[in-house]
Design a protein around this nucleic acid. Structure first.
Lengths: 333, 333
DNA sequence: CTGTTAGCGCCTTCAT
DNA sequence: ATGAAGGCGCTAACAG
């Protein structure tokens, strides 16, 4: 009936010591005579005792679990980050409660609240938009938070990502150097700072430097999905763009397939450069040129930063930028 | 400093009732006079009180969280299941602790133990092999378990999947009808029952029915990864197979690209049929023909089954088979 | 080095 | 309908 009935008290009795002592050996407290430690360990083993993490959490006010809010695990970009997060979490003895939010402000707030109710020691948030309500809740709870692969224009939250402005500027410049004058900018909602502020800025800077006039007809806003890219193709085609920068790999693959299924040759007739360098870029044909960013590391570093925050260590910089690169595969000339 | 200091006790004092009453309204216990309920609710709102789930878990012995052991979130097949699991979990007010195992027996046992230490109310396990040790641990803990998308030959664990034998048999038959006599069977480790028993059985049955002799040279065992498929291609080529059944989509894409990069035309020169009908099958060119299985639903149903088990409801059948299908896309004639 | 004693915040009988 | 009291299993001072 009961999950497990052996408590620290049983061990104490069997080993003829106090529960405090048992607690000490369980927690690796050095103040225990080797002999009694051995004895206790033996009893623990014999009784197959396992500390109840919930009770421990209540008493110590630390649950060794962190909440991870993710738009959709099914998206390879986010799941890659998640994997890095989990690995580092495990390394530091934490577990993660994963919750999908679909980038929906409502759900995010709700999920955050249940996470806080569960007394998570910290939170990692993925999502490109932070509603005011969410930000408010986040601040009210005095729980450490770090954004993973998401920017916070205000800089008040910990975050780790790459220099989107520079990365996009570089990739656009590349496209320009290949002779393209009309370059489509395809992304998710421009309301998301990462698109509307950072990436767009990089795009504009590159154009400006090359003396090309900005044309808002070349800006395409849609979802982060394969289907969205495919569907978008006709519109891109009629904009007379000869190349596209795309903000998400799945989306990029959609554009790629849209173009090819329409009879265009990539990169001869149309060039594409994408943003996340996920597995997908190598899986499709032609392989997609991409901004490279260390997805796994982004997650891993986020979690590492969070551990510091949770330990109340001093961190010199709450906003960490990881190196990015540009890899030319076969979707660009 | 403290995460949250308002306790049920504060609310009780402010509302001039006992904490028992507050507990009652919080838990929706009907034995509370509407008037006092209203008063309490008001104070709760004013003080912005939120029940501490850890304390609640300790007292009630239920944490409303379930553990999910997954080989790798980054694999689209598993993440699709995970998404279904999380959605249903949310629906039933549960949260999931997600832990990656890499299908490594050691890690699985370890992860299982920390999950149990955290007093999860139930466990969903994904992974194609259950080591004896793991099975033993699973049984010892009296925690409900259901396998999601994984078979348990012994049938003692709850599980939800599709009829792999029939599905594979059907797809192989299809390949045979297209004129193929030498069909490669590409899968993960044959030690995994899903491959070595179920799928292989379907494969053999189809051959037998068509009067084709089984040739073990056509059996290829490898990892579930894109790279593995690509790497495997030369071997497949030299086996003179004219078609392949593949047990995993990423792997199948690897084989596909391996074949195409080697100059073959698919499906004219080589046919491929894969197993999971994940997003990938539609993303690549040619699109992959596949056994179809409701990935999201597999996860969702698993979680639903788990809720029943956790509630100690009677379940007529612990092994649930969901319908599968076969979709002919462009990698088969 | 080891034991005692309070809680941690909430649920749950048992009375009233 | 409501209150009082005893845990749930463990940590954390505080004494010795």
């Amino acid at each position: 009936m009961d999950k497990q009935t052996i408590t620290i008290y049983d061990v104490a009795r069997e080993a003829a010591v106090s529960m405090a002592t048992v607690s000490r050996v369980v927690n690796g407290n050095p103040n225990v005579k080797p002999a009694t430690r051995k004895k206790v360990l033996e009893v623990i083993d014999r009784l197959d005792y396992r500390p109840n993490a919930v009770a421990r959490g209540l008493a110590s006010k630390k649950t060794t679990t962190v909440g991870v809010i993710i738009p959709d695990v099914t998206n390879i970009y986010f799941s890659s980050l998640a994997r890095g997060i989990d690995d580092v979490a495990t390394m530091y003895k934490y577990n993660i409660i994963l919750a999908n939010s679909d980038q929906n402000g409502q759900k995010e707030v709700q999920v955050l609240n249940t996470l806080l109710a569960k007394q998570v020691d910290g939170i990692i948030f993925m999502g490109n938009q932070i509603t005011d309500e969410l930000r408010a809740e986040l601040k009210r709870s005095r729980t450490p938070v770090v954004l993973s692969g998401s920017v916070d224009p205000t800089g008040e939250l910990g975050s780790v990502n790459i220099d989107y402005v520079a990365a996009v500027m570089e990739s656009i410049t590349d496209l320009i150097n290949n002779g393209n004058k009309r370059i489509a900018f395809v992304s998710g909602s421009m309301d998301e700072p990462i698109n509307g502020e950072y990436r767009l800025k990089g795009y504009k800077m590159a154009l400006e430097k090359a003396g090309i006039k900005f044309d808002k007809e070349l800006i395409f806003e849609t979802d982060y999905s394969y289907r969205a890219g495919e569907t978008l193709w006709p519109a891109i085609a009629s904009s007379h763009a000869t190349a596209a920068f795309v903000g998400d790999d799945e989306l990029a693959v959609g554009v790629l397939n849209g173009a090819r299924d329409a009879g265009l040759r990539v990169p001869e007739d149309f060039e594409i450069i994408t943003s996340n360098d996920s597995k997908l870029t190598e899986i499709v044909r032609p392989k997609l040129s991409s901004i490279t960013q260390p997805l796994y590391d982004l997650g891993a570093v986020s979690m590492r930063l969070l551990t510091k925050l949770m330990d109340k260590e001093e961190v010199s910089e709450k906003t960490i930028l990881l190196p990015y690169g540009l890899i030319k595969r076969s979707s660009t000339k």
